Computed example of a mutant assay.
Amino acid sequence: MKTPALGRRGLLFGGAAAGAGVLLAGCTSNESNDGDDDGAQSQAAANTDEEGPAVTIGFAGPQADHGWLNAINEHARSRAEEYADVTLEITEGSNDTAQQIGQIESLINSQVDVLVILPADGRSLTQAALSAMNAGIPVINLDRVFDTPQAYRCWVGGDNYGMGLNAGHYIGEQLRDVEGARVVELSGPDNLELTVQRTQGFDDALANYPNIEKVARQAADFTVESGQDVMSGLLQAVPEFHALWNHDDDQGVGAERAIDQAGRDEFFMVGGAGSRHVMEAIQADNTVLKATVLYPPTMAASAIDLARAVGQAKGIGGLAEFEIPSFIQLYSAVVTKDNVEQYLPTGFN
């Protein structure tokens, strides 16, 4: 059954006290916390297989023209399939703003209970998200943020600054005892705020290591071809260095080709995002690739969990509040040979 409009507006701004206890990392719980037992909330969080009220979740994302974006779609689909009480209405992704707005309007008109939106452009899609919220449909904003918090019930996404920070600290620790260490950065497009944030985090981390100098930085376009072209130029410009941080594992495939063609192996490489290809190379330990910093596409599965929780008026297990948070930023873990087996199942193609 569809939630009445007034009831849905209640989900936007409060009124979920009937049941705290959702295990976001796994699934949501449907056990209400009606008793006074101190263990009731933790018990509710543990009962993740119980079905609850039916929830129809609309999902609108950009075109899957990149390995990470394709993984976003797959994680959303597979997570929704785990729930007998969830119906997922997913649109064909588009990088055309007008087309994505039309898809969101169509989902609003079909009266889905909750919307998950990864906008092709957060600013341009803000009004469409506001329209959903004004129609009483809670929006889970995935990764690329809208211009105003009024456009979403909850934002969940990656930490671009933290991604650069953790890459920088990993490289810094590996080179701590190397006098005159030289580092190169292969970034994403400079017109993207996420690139600026990743570089800032990287620079802030390296500032803790006075023996390290970043001797070159060039921007690629998150594609294999651009990664190969730009990396070829960097290798010619910098005859010797100790470490390379590449912002994106897709463009890193091209960077690897350039490195192989140049026959260079005096440095180690740290990737970005967490592709399966890179994780397998880290596991094999027979190339310059020694680590990658995650920007986990599993956030799409978490967005489905959050949408289900909102639709069923639940909270999150482990938190005292009856509501889901309004902002969840994921951690950018560093994957190395020591922990790659743990993260390998999350690697994307």
Rank of each mutant, 00 (worst) to 15 (best):
N211S: 15
R308L: 11
E89N: 11
R9W: 12
Q283K: 15
A181C: 05
S275I: 05
D85Y: 00
Q99A: 15
L23P: 02
V230C: 06
L165G: 01
A46K: 10
I171W: 02
L289Q: 11
R308F: 00
S32D: 11
T292I: 02
E280W: 09
L125G: 01
C27S: 12
E74L: 15
T87W: 03
S106M: 06
G272I: 02
R276K: 15
H247I: 04
V114L: 04
A64S: 13
N141W: 11
N33L: 12
S78D: 15
F348L: 07
Q283I: 02
L142K: 07
Q100D: 03
Q63A: 15
A216V: 01
G122Q: 10
G93P: 10
Q103T: 04
A20E: 09
I137V: 13
I328H: 04
Q261V: 07
D36T: 14
I72L: 15
T223F: 08
V310W: 03
I101D: 07
G274N: 09
F241K: 01
I282K: 00
Q99M: 07
E240F: 08
G311C: 06
F13A: 13
E51F: 03
I108G: 02
A71P: 10
P62M: 12
L130E: 14
N166W: 02
N141G: 04
A129C: 14
I57K: 01
N211F: 10
G52L: 08
T346D: 13
Q41Y: 06
D49M: 08
T287A: 07
G271T: 09
A151G: 10
A243M: 13
T292R: 00
Q174W: 10
K337H: 12
Y331P: 00
I259M: 07
Y83F: 15
Q43N: 09
A20Q: 09
R8H: 02
Q218A: 14
D38C: 02
A207W: 02
L175D: 07
F322I: 13
P345Q: 09
M133E: 14
D143W: 09
L23C: 06
F348I: 10
E225P: 06
D113T: 05
I212K: 04
T292W: 00
M231A: 05
G122K: 04
V310I: 15
Q312P: 06
R264L: 13
A291H: 03
L165Y: 14
E82I: 01
E213W: 03
S110F: 04
V183G: 00
N30C: 09
M1F: 13
G26E: 10
Q127Y: 05
A40G: 09
G252F: 02
R8D: 07
Q312T: 15
Q127P: 01
G188R: 10
V22Y: 03
V86N: 00
T56M: 09
F241L: 03
W245T: 01
G227S: 03
Q312K: 09
A64C: 00
A151K: 08
D248P: 06
L107T: 05
G10M: 13
Q283Y: 11
T223Q: 09
